[in-house]
């Protein structure tokens, strides 16, 4: 799972001191990080930390109130998600933008269908679309026997991967994944993490939003931690351990007091308390 060391680390997207306020409410302030080609930038934070505001800015759904975005070193503002997409920034939202009753291949090309012929005889190039869907999914390591099955019959992880493969095929350079593992079990999460690593290995810059440090750490190259709309750190992988990450996420002091509280109620021998203590020590 370790990333292949890139010879030259090309920065695709740079986030420079970005902030977003809605009237008097500051949703986000002073966020900076970079997204490099062939690397995974993880954005970690609890509910309400500002993760969704952050990705909406990257995806072009919101414009930042302050700071700037640099794409290939040039300052950019996206007027719409379509504009961001046209510049190669694709976002895979939690609902995946798939139509459950439609076959996998129709979903893969939905909105960008291939056609042949012209005039009234312009028709879908079904054969080619099926072929491409099959090979693109194989490239991501998904072997679907039948791309004719409705996408609703695939597992959550598989559907996530189809959405990723679709973004990659349609020329994404930066792939933003909004909590792709949030609704998945352990095994399915592992499957998705593997595809994130594959997308990374194909040279994409990946922005992986999650609240789970155990999912972020194995694939991440850089970790941006958010808390209540502010950055509490932007670390390269060599500068941080999983324990530190977990502790920062939970807020080290808060975890300590939680351990003591549970100790009083459950007794010091409780397996849960022991586990928490171990985690605290690891963090320190």
């Amino acid at each position: 799972m370790t990333s292949t060391e890139p010879k030259t680390r090309i920065t695709i997207l740079e986030v420079n001191n970005i902030g977003k306020s809605y009237g008097a409410v500051n949703a986000l302030a002073g966020i900076s990080t970079v997204v490099n080609a062939g690397q995974v930038t993880c954005v970690l934070g609890d509910n309400g930390a500002g993760k969704s505001t952050f990705i909406k800015i990257l995806a072009g759904a919101h414009t930042p109130s302050e700071g700037q975005l640099l794409l290939d070193g040039e300052p950019v503002t996206f007027s719409s998600p379509r504009a961001a997409l046209d510049r190669g920034i694709a976002t895979v939202y939690q609902d995946l933008a798939v139509v459950p009753l439609m076959p996998v291949w129709r979903n893969f090309f939905l909105g960008s269908e291939l056609t042949r012929g012209s005039g009234p005889f312009r028709r879908l190039d079904v054969k080619e679309m099926k072929r491409i869907t099959l090979t693109e999914l194989l490239n991501m390591g998904i072997d679907l026997r039948d791309v004719d099955q409705p996408i609703g019959t695939l597992s959550g992880g598989e559907r996530q991967c189809v959405a990723i493969a679709r973004a990659v095929y349609f020329g994404a350079r930066v792939l933003i994944l909004d909590e792709p593992t949030a609704a998945l079990g352990v095994k399915q999460s592992g499957v998705v993490l593997r595809y994130i690593a594959r997308a990374r290995d194909r040279g994409l810059g990946v922005v992986f939003i999650t609240h789970n440090p155990h999912h972020a750490f194995p694939v991440g190259d850089r970790f941006l931690l958010l808390n209540r709309g502010e950055s509490i750190g932007d670390f390269e992988k060599s500068k941080i351990t999983l324990g530190e990450l977990t502790s920062l996420m939970a807020g080290g002091a808060e975890l300590d007091s939680l351990t003591h509280e549970l100790e009083r109620e459950l007794g010091a021998d409780s397996p849960l308390v022991k586990e928490l203590e171990a985690e605290n020590q690891q963090a320190e």
Partner: peptide, 28 residues
């Protein structure tokens, strides 16, 4: 039948009826 199964318009008809928001997101 031709429109429904073999044209872009047909693809969009299934899509807008099956999942309106998803269709919008992918540019239908």
């Amino acid at each position: 039948t031709w429109v429904l199964l073999r044209t872009r318009a047909g693809n969009w008809i299934f899509a807008v009826g099956g999942a309106l928001n998803s269709s919008r997101q992918v540019g239908v």
